[in-house]
Amino acid sequence: MKNTSTRLLLSCAAIGVAGGILYIMASYLGGTINAVVPMLYGLTLGVYFLPGAVAQYLFRRGGVALLVAVLSGLVSAAFQPLGFLAALIAVGIGAVQELPFLIFRYRRWPAWLFVAGAVFAGIILAIGMYRLVGARELDPAGAIVLVAGSVLSPVIFTLLAIAVARALAATGVARGIARPTDRP
């Protein structure tokens, strides 16, 4: 992240702290849902994509999703049952969020690329949730709901992040630090 201003770093830190608080709430809600209705657990996982996608859409700079995810994970690590493992998971999510834009060398930022990245991440999550939650022990309908929720949840929360980022951009928060949508 060359040419990184203090304003960009502080903006990412603010999004990261808000995301960390969101991660804390999501971990307890997700844990409760996993214990009570495990087939719906996949629907809670998209929350972890929200802070990184907001930062990416708002600033259109490489590395901001990873930075925000790291900060969110560190903020939430002390308050989650997973501890520091939560921060490592957040780093993984931030890295997956960066991949589609890295392919385009951080020059294109269309909304469909955010959705495509979320679908890719959702497929990775679905495979993990199938193994972690034990979908083999669920009935076929429950396994389908778990896998479908794991794929759709990142997409839904990424679209929500785009809406939040657009609202933030309309207030002028990113003026002067956001890059243009497409660069040659």
Rank of each mutant, 00 (worst) to 15 (best):
A126Y: 07
M25K: 13
V164F: 00
I124E: 15
L146Y: 03
N34H: 11
A148W: 10
R105F: 14
A18G: 07
G19K: 12
F84G: 10
F49V: 10
A148M: 11
R183N: 07
I124G: 15
L168W: 14
P154M: 03
P51C: 05
R60L: 01
R136N: 03
V173R: 14
V96N: 10
G30P: 00
A87F: 02
I24M: 10
Q56C: 00
L22K: 09
C12R: 12
Y41M: 04
M129H: 08
G149V: 02
V37E: 13
L58V: 06
G30V: 04
S27L: 01
I177K: 06
S27F: 01
K2L: 15
A116L: 06
T4P: 02
S11T: 14
M129Y: 07
A178Y: 01
L138Y: 04
G142R: 06
L138G: 01
P154H: 10
G30E: 06
V145R: 10
T4C: 04
F59Q: 10
R175I: 03
F101C: 12
R61C: 00
A165C: 04
A95H: 14
R107S: 02
V147F: 14
A174P: 02
P51F: 04
T4A: 08
A14Y: 12
F49G: 11
V155T: 02
R136E: 07
P81G: 12
I21F: 00
S5L: 00
G42L: 05
V151Y: 03
Q80S: 04
L88C: 09
Y23W: 01
L152F: 10
Q97D: 14
P110F: 13
A26Y: 04
V70H: 02
V75H: 02
Y130G: 05
G122A: 08
V17H: 08
P38K: 10
G19I: 08
F84A: 15
S11I: 04
A178D: 00
G19F: 08
T4L: 07
G16D: 11
Y23N: 02
P38I: 09
L82P: 02
R107I: 01
V54N: 14
I162F: 00
P81E: 14
L9F: 08
L66Q: 06
F120C: 12
A170F: 07
L45G: 11
F84N: 11
V47N: 15
P51W: 09
A169I: 03
Y28D: 06
